[in-house]
Design a protein around this nucleic acid. Structure first.
Lengths: 240, 240
DNA sequence: AAGTGGTCTAGACCACGGC
DNA sequence: CCGTGGTCTAGACCACTTC
């Protein structure tokens, strides 16, 4: 009497996805009521606990809100705080094209501190790419990223001209990024940075040092970003 | 045949807490195995699903890790990224005492921009308290916080000398804080800030503007923090 | 093979919300 | 009042890890 599910996926996931699809397709709008546990159980031919599991997961992910005694409702779209996004993605999410210029691209072996952060030997070769990010014609940030050269063979700077670093890592090398730890502080622009950003030497700039980890837990990229004061604000949401 | 639980709390929460206590008391150390679902069910006289619920919640909170086929294990203590903590709490979590000096405390009605951020009329009275945070004898930050004066009657600056702002809000006024949205950028120290932080005028400083919301979703406090360069680094974790 | 977590059933009662 | 989500039972089988 075991009702075989069509695929190998858990029933609660299938229910979850079916609701998720309807939300993304716009058939269910924020505020709309979602089927109750009992309705879903009947529709999908599962027990209450299974239907419940599906809704509980969706609530945990922020897709729906559950109100005791009232029902389950589609949640308003969340603003993506604390999301790890590439510059290209950030611009795209605002409907803008990413503009940047590669300042330098080389393989270096003399940056022991950064190699250490990437859990590598002190003399390990690193791909080092420095780019100036532009808004309109004005440069507003200098980003330098470091990758272990051994893990990204035949890394092509040309590809960087076209697409984002993230998409290259993910599509060309199958590296799934998971999270990043960032250190943020203020500092003054040194000579070369000042020149690249067209600001006076010593101007206050925001420095963001980012260590990006892949899903396997390995540090994959180190990025140092220097942002012109007044041109850039970081947004974070903290929870209690 | 309904086994009455001693209190009104759900069984799965009691199980959760009993495990949580043993972890915090050090009886269970990171890596230690936790009782299996079946064991917990027997011990607490509940069904498997209930014991399971308790462990699933603990896993969601990051207290334990579950490994399919192997067991449930105490997770290593997590670094609290992206947590909304008061200065006092941050220091306490490092085993240090918070040291700060109140620079000024007044009620103002002429800061329309900040009143607006707190969703108040432009002329609403605001409690404004400026404090210098110290590490040892060295000042490293200037924090100015604003609260709606109407909602915190008889706000005592004296209490601030003793405890943290957060604890006053939570204990004296029953305001539960939920989350904060922060804007972070770099700027240069103005005259008065430079003097208070003992740094040259124009030195780069990290500015953090924070709007703190209560659990009811209402903006409750606005904080502007100015941090000396080199003395302070912000840590964030971003997820993909 | 034994033990674990992951999924699931077919019910039950309770607490809460809105009419 | 009825329908909702919240908790819970007493089992079951499967997938996985460990030995």
């Amino acid at each position: 009497m075991k009702p075989v599910n069509g695929d190998g996926k858990p029933a609660y996931r299938r229910i979850q996805h079916s609701i998720q699809k309807r939300i993304q397709a716009g058939q269910l709008k924020p505020g709309d009521v979602v089927e109750s546990e009992r309705e879903l159980a009947k529709i999908h031919g599962v027990s209450l606990m299974t239907a419940r599991h599906a809704l509980a997961e969706l609530a945990r992910e922020g897709m729906v809100e559950r109100r005791h005694g009232a029902g389950t409702f589609v949640a308003p779209p969340k603003i993506h705080f604390n999301k790890l996004m590439s510059y290209t993605e950030q611009m795209a999410s605002r409907g803008l094209a990413a503009r940047s210029r590669i300042v330098s691209a080389e393989t270096v072996s003399n940056e022991p501190e950064i190699a250490a952060r990437l859990s590598l030997g002190t003399a390990s070769p690193l791909i080092k790419v420095a780019r100036v990010r532009q808004a309109g014609d004005e440069p507003f940030a200098l980003e330098t990223c470091y990758l272990p050269a051994d893990e990204f063979p035949s890394f092509s700077t040309a590809a960087l001209e076209r697409g984002s670093l993230f998409s290259i890592l993910e599509r060309e090398y199958g590296t799934e990024l998971a999270y990043a730890d960032e250190e943020i502080d203020a500092t003054g622009a040194d000579e070369s940075t000042a020149e690249l950003l067209s600001i006076p030497h010593g101007s206050p700039i925001l420095r963001m040092r980012q260590l990006i980890f892949s899903t396997s837990g390995k540090p994959t990229t180190y990025v140092v970003g220097l942002y012109r004061s007044g041109r850039h604000t970081l947004l974070i949401r903290r929870f209690r």
